[in-house]
Design a binder for these strands. Sequence first.
DNA 1: GCGGAAGTTTACGTAAACGTAAAGTAAGTA
DNA 2: TACTTACTTTACGTTTACGTAAACTTCCGC
Lengths: 133, 133
Amino acid sequence: MPISHTTTFSISELASEFDVTTRSIRFYEDQQLLFPTRRGQTRVYSAQDRVRLKLILRGKRLGFSLAETRELFALWDETPTGSMKQLRLLMAKIEEKKTALEQQLNDIAMLQLELDSAETRCREAMNELTATT
Amino acid sequence: MPISHTTTFSISELASEFDVTTRSIRFYEDQQLLFPTRRGQTRVYSAQDRVRLKLILRGKRLGFSLAETRELFALWDETPTGSMKQLRLLMAKIEEKKTALEQQLNDIAMLQLELDSAETRCREAMNELTATT
DNA sequence: GCGGAAGTTTACGTAAACGTAAAGTAAGTA
DNA sequence: TACTTACTTTACGTTTACGTAAACTTCCGC
């Protein structure tokens, strides 16, 4: 059901665009990660919701739990309008995430080296087989 | 029980070194990711096992399931001594992992930008509060 | 030789992230 | 009007990755 298309989407549009099930999308709503409006019973998703869904899936690719992603949304949403104490806490969370990402970058770099090595060995083995020795 | 220490480790040594529970380590064995030898009943871990454990944990940080990590181990182990067909399959798997890692790098880069932005906003908010305006 | 620490197996429990079936509604269409 | 299609809620089932308790065995120090 392609919705009015000013800037809104149906659940199946999003599902097929991002290749997830409607079940998943509803589950993300259940977990307070998405907040579509309703036209009667039917869910109507805004462009913002679409972005959020994209971010959720990105989070998954990085191994984040839905809870963690929700935390990140909180970081992003909280237009920093809190007390000094809250702001310090927010900064701490941000730094924490940043160091975790640094760690991930390291991990990925190592894995890439190993895969490259495996690739080389594989290539050599293929050459052995091809060679007319 | 610090074992003979030529190059072997007890389960609790590994557990405390990597800050995981012994339960987890035993579970990884159950899932065919580790293969400690036995001294009587007791598990004895080699340096190789230790490396594997480290790799398992790295995998977890990258969001890999234990099954995926086991697959990676297979890639690594299979000293490429198979048929051409098998080698091509191996190469395909390696490429697949590599592109997945590229995707992850992209994802991380994006997230880093967003976190930097959040950090900036946070700093500005703190300055607002501090300023004697 | 006895208590405590560290190891073991067996087995049931649990949280996260959905899958899947059941049963119903609402809109468009032949 | 009947049929199809897309959407909905409710609710139980499933997989992964362990946690946790129970009930041993082994070894070490005193």
